[in-house]
């Protein structure tokens, strides 16, 4: 029954089966190596592959990956060198990881991105944790955006952090912080020193909050620390 012919047919069948089994694996491996569709055509193949690896690693770690793609595309639009683009993407991935660790794993993607930006501006990871504790359920995006803006306007990072934390502790809402940022920017534009502008406006915001809540802010001092509300 089992002659040489049947053995040959069996070998061919085995080979076909092997090919059919391994072919999808090869295809999926190729798909894994293929650059992210958003990057194809905008970046050189080598850069696209590097960025894609970082994007997939972030995704696997549960980090937001869109900011990494966005950074790479921004670099391409600005004509940055491939090295610079890859460096920017890797640096951001690290900042996202640190921000999530500081803000907590249940933070929303936009909070993690805002935290990464604040870290770049100079905020301490402990401050990120404090902010999260003050707003356990509410978004911390706006406080972090305001913090970053203060630092860019040359407010020392510790002063900026103190202003945002103190007002958040006093119950400031996003609108209060947005208004504070506008006023500080106006004052600096009008010639005030960044430190004075933040101190003055934080104090004013604390008074407004206290009036709204029917309380009286602590008196004395001129720095942001004086804006504490009991």
């Amino acid at each position: 029954m089992n002659g040489p012919g049947s053995r040959g047919r069996g070998g061919a069948a085995l080979l076909v089966g092997l090919v059919l089994t391994l072919a999808p694996l090869g295809a999926s491996a190729r798909a894994a190596e293929a650059p992210d569709p958003a990057l194809a055509g905008r970046l050189e193949p080598g850069v696209a592959a590097e960025v894609t690896r970082a994007v997939r690693a972030a995704r696997a770690a549960g980090l937001p990956d869109e900011p990494l793609i966005s950074t790479a595309l921004e670099g391409a639009s600005r004509g940055a060198t491939p090295d610079r683009i890859v460096r920017a993407v890797r640096r951001l991935a690290g900042e996202l990881e640190r921000a999530r660790a500081a803000l907590g794993g249940r933070s929303r993607p936009e909070e993690i991105v805002a935290g990464a930006s604040a870290l770049r501006a100079g905020i301490a990871t402990a401050t990120l944790g404090q902010l999260r504790a003050l707003r356990p359920a509410e978004s911390v995006v706006v406080p972090l955006v305001v913090y970053g803006d203060f630092v860019v306007r040359r407010v020392p990072p510790e002063r900026a952090a103190s202003a945002v934390l103190d007002l958040t502790r006093a119950g400031a809402r996003d609108e209060d912080l947005i208004r504070l940022r506008e006023r500080v920017a106006q004052d600096i534009g009008a010639g005030a020193t960044p430190v004075d502008a933040v101190a003055l406006r934080t104090r004013g915001a604390a008074l407004e909050l206290a009036a709204r809540q029917g309380a009286t802010p602590a008196s004395g001092g001129s720095g942001p620390g004086a804006a504490r509300v009991p």
């Binding site: 930006s117 770049r120 955006v145 803006d149 860019v152 306007r153």
Partner: peptide
């Protein structure tokens, strides 16, 4: 508002678009 200087030497502007659950 401005974001801190990025790897490409530019300070981008920031906006926060409010949504239903933000």
């Amino acid at each position: 508002p401005l974001a801190p200087e990025d790897e490409f030497g530019f300070r981008k502007s920031v906006m926060v678009v409010a949504g239903a659950d933000s």
